[in-house]
């Protein structure tokens, strides 16, 4: 049954399906119970699955992730909600020093099938710590997988795949896209689903490849429409998985188009774009018509809401990069 729902609602449905299909799945976080989370992603789940499976935790992120580790050792599959990107850092120690390394340390004996959900990115007019994009800080850590969805259909499938995976996964949710609608097949089976760690060409094109993820996929698609008016046919790839990266899809595209532009909100310095540019240069050097370009946030703390529009990559900045690529 296909329904048109928001990205937030799709996550809610996906979490519900996960809770239904495996009694070991538990959701834990601040305000996830009665309130349904500050973004209502867990709305109604505590009412239907009980306080033991949808757990309002004490206000302590290190505690949320640290106890999730213990629950996982005990056979549970915790889905942790971090309320906002900027509040994950009390848990960073547990994530980097424990979650990421447990499988390796235990000689493969201990799996931690933990999902850490983090609403990320800006554009919602918020105060400090509510608009950040810390994905590279996690993608850099061996032992963690990092994914992000960009549309309702992927949100529904990817959250279920993440919960079903035995890898620890940091799941970034593009918070400013929570309210965007799209068609979702709620009956879709996971067996048939597009693989979690594969990138997807969301708009085929021939002239340049735009590599984006999360909130910037929409921006890049809009830019592709605008570019078409100038007679440029852009290909847009939604990376979806930030670690591991699905480079095969990226290389195939860049070898065809000869141009690559990476778009993300996070600061450019050592962001995902740095890694993508390096790998594309190594693998596609002779196909490139121009250097890999990056359109990113600046290397400054996330600024005040009233100037965030100037901070965030937008359609114009993507098109500007396209021009620069073609002007090479």
């Amino acid at each position: 049954m296909a329904e048109t729902i928001t990205l937030g609602k799709a996550l809610n449905h996906g979490l519900r399906r996960s809770l239904e299909s495996d009694p070991k799945v538990v959701i834990m976080g601040e305000d996830v119970g009665k309130l349904g989370g500050v973004f209502r992603i867990t709305d109604g789940l505590q009412k239907d699955f009980g306080e033991d499976r949808v757990i309002d935790t004490p206000l302590a992120e290190s505690g949320i992730v640290g106890t999730a580790i213990g629950l996982a050792i005990r056979g549970y599959r915790p889905v942790c909600e971090i309320q906002f990107d900027g509040f994950v850092f009390p848990a960073y120690n547990q994530i980097v020093a424990q979650v990421a390394k447990m499988f390796y340390r235990s000689l493969g004996n201990v799996r931690l099938p933990i999902v850490i959900r983090i609403p990320f990115g800006g554009g919602i007019g918020a105060v400090e710590h509510h608009s950040e994009s810390p994905e590279a800080l996690f993608a850099h850590v061996p032992g963690l997988k990092v994914v992000t969805c960009a549309n309702p259909a992927d949100a529904y499938t990817m959250i279920r795949q993440a919960v079903a995976s035995d890898d620890p996964i940091v799941f970034f949710e593009p918070k400013r896209r929570y309210w965007e609608k799209g068609e979702v097949d709620l009956d879709a089976d996971l067996d048939q689903a597009f693989p979690l760690h594969a990138a997807r060409v969301v708009k085929p094109g021939t002239d340049a490849t735009i590599l984006a993820y999360g909130p910037m996929v929409r921006t890049s698609l809009d830019a592709a429409i605008a570019a078409a008016e100038d007679g440029r046919n852009l290909e847009v790839i939604d990376l979806r998985s930030l670690s591991p990266l699905d480079m095969a899809t990226v290389y195939a595209s860049v070898r065809r188009t000869g141009r690559a532009i990476v778009v993300h909100e996070a600061p450019g310095n050592l962001g995902l774009g740095s890694e993508l540019a390096a790998r594309i240069t190594e693998e596609c050097f002779y196909s490139l018509e121009a250097p890999v370009l990056r359109v990113t946030g600046y290397d400054i703390p996330y600024p005040a809401a009233r100037v965030e529009e100037e901070y965030l990559p937008d359609l114009d900045r993507v098109l500007d990069a396209v021009d620069r690529s073609f002007g090479w």
Partner: peptide, 18 residues
């Protein structure tokens, strides 16, 4: 604020990159 002021006060000693 003037948008360009977002580049102010990142470091006491400034940064050539910023």
């Amino acid at each position: 604020p003037q948008p360009v002021t977002m580049f102010d006060n990142v470091y006491p000693h400034g940064s050539p990159e910023v």
